[in-house]
Amino acid sequence: MNKHVNTPNGKPLMPTIKWGQALCLGAFTLVVSGCSVTPPKTFTVRAEVPENFTVTGTADYVPGPGESCTGRSGKPFRIGRLHFKPEQPNTAHQVEFKVPLTDTEHGCPTVLQELTMNIEGQWGKRERDMSLASAGFSISQEPSALSPATSTPQAQVFNGQCQWLFRTVGSKRVIRKILQCRAVGANGEMEKRMIGGRLHRDQLADSTVKLVLSVAKEEEPYFNRYWIKTAAGWKPCKGNWGRDIEELCVTPPQFKKFKMPDGRDCTVYPNCTEQEQ
């Protein structure tokens, strides 16, 4: 797993190094016979993802209490950033990586403040046919109301659902898709809030934070009231603005043709033709 540390302006504080190397180079115990270290406490991030999805992580670390971190410029920095990728290839639609609760760079102890889980969905065959969404977690330093974590703490599970939204772009009105992911409530319905929440530091060591993602069965238009649903499929409206892309529907509605990513000229989405399928 590769590790990167960035300042707020996005410039790396040190070259990309392997995780094992980072432990030896940090402010840990070193002995003549080799690198003898006390690894930082970690927790596991595990994501169950739909087909053609993956999840990576971005963690922000801030100086510990009373610490002042200095970058290569000699100026203090406020945030160190680590990037995490799955430790193994996506197997059975599950990805996993470990996140340390503390980190040391340039002799400066830092503590985990935030974790972003980057959700990437592939909607087409081309590499660029993808879209991104995210889940976010803040790390609370306050003691949890729960009992202290045991030697085998239970997993914290966060459920989310992703929705593919379609629209047209450019003068040829080619279909593109945008990924939107939201939290799923106790009733199983998608909510307006983002996936994520607050994690308590005293409950995290050696625990698992689990993200369970699903995908809505039906796609929806990206722009509300710019498409009309018919028995054959969705039809993009032509309005009063004279733009190339779909417009706000008027009464009576008028429609535009568009192109599928494979180049087909179509009148309804996703069936392409008026004939019901």
Score class of each variant (00 low, 15 high):
Asn2Val: 07
Gly10Tyr: 12
Lys18His: 11
Trp19Phe: 10
Cys24Tyr: 00
Cys24Ile: 02
Gly26Glu: 15
Phe28Met: 10
Phe28Thr: 11
Ser33Pro: 00
Val37Arg: 05
Pro40Phe: 13
Lys41Ser: 15
Val49Met: 06
Pro50Tyr: 08
Gly66Leu: 09
Thr91Phe: 13
Leu101Asp: 04
Thr104Phe: 05
Glu105Phe: 09
Pro109Glu: 11
Asn118Cys: 00
Arg128Met: 08
Asp129Thr: 05
Gly136Phe: 11
Phe137Ser: 03
Ser138Met: 09
Ser147Ala: 14
Ala149Leu: 09
Arg167Tyr: 02
Leu179Glu: 00
Gly185Asn: 06
Asn187Cys: 00
Glu189Met: 13
Ile195Arg: 02
Arg198Gly: 02
Arg198Thr: 15
Leu199Asp: 02
Leu204Ile: 01
Ala205Phe: 02
Asp206Pro: 02
Ser214Arg: 11
Val215Phe: 03
Val215Arg: 12
Ala216Arg: 09
Glu219Phe: 08
Pro221Thr: 11
Tyr222Lys: 03
Arg225Phe: 13
Ala231Met: 08
Ala231Tyr: 07
Trp234Phe: 13
Gly239Ser: 10
Gly239Ile: 04
Glu246Cys: 01
Lys256Val: 07
Lys256Trp: 05
Phe258Pro: 06
Lys259Leu: 11
Pro261Ser: 12
Asp262Ile: 10
Gly263Trp: 05
Val268Gln: 05
Glu274Ile: 08
Gln277Val: 10
